[in-house]
């Protein structure tokens, strides 16, 4: 599984570069339910009744750019773009 994360120092790769079949994954202990991912992609990420994200099993190609942005801005770095097994 490839996990790419952008930080301030090594902006060599874009988030999710090299991921063939991208999907969003939540790091549950880190997620505090801020809901920024839902605000950025209301059609892709839903929120449950407590405000935690419900992410789809896979992403359409046109959703990947927004997903990348959501990963970048997540305030607790709880969101990752990973390779989903086909």
């Amino acid at each position: 599984m490839h996990i790419f994360h952008l930080d301030g120092l090594t902006q060599l790769a874009r988030i999710g570069d090299g991921v063939v079949n991208p999907k969003l994954r939540v790091d549950w202990p880190l997620c505090c339910g801020r809901g920024l991912c839902h605000e950025l992609m209301p059609d892709v990420v839903a929120l449950d009744e407590w405000g935690y994200p419900i992410v789809p099993d896979s992403l359409e190609s046109h959703q990947v750019a927004d997903a990348r942005e959501a990963v970048r801005v997540c305030p607790t770095l709880a969101l990752r773009l990973v390779d989903a097994p086909r």
Binding site: W28, W50, G51, Y52
Partner: peptide
């Protein structure tokens, strides 16, 4: 109590 869905769910 570390993960929201478990803590609340």
């Amino acid at each position: 109590g570390r993960c929201g869905p478990c803590l609340n769910g």
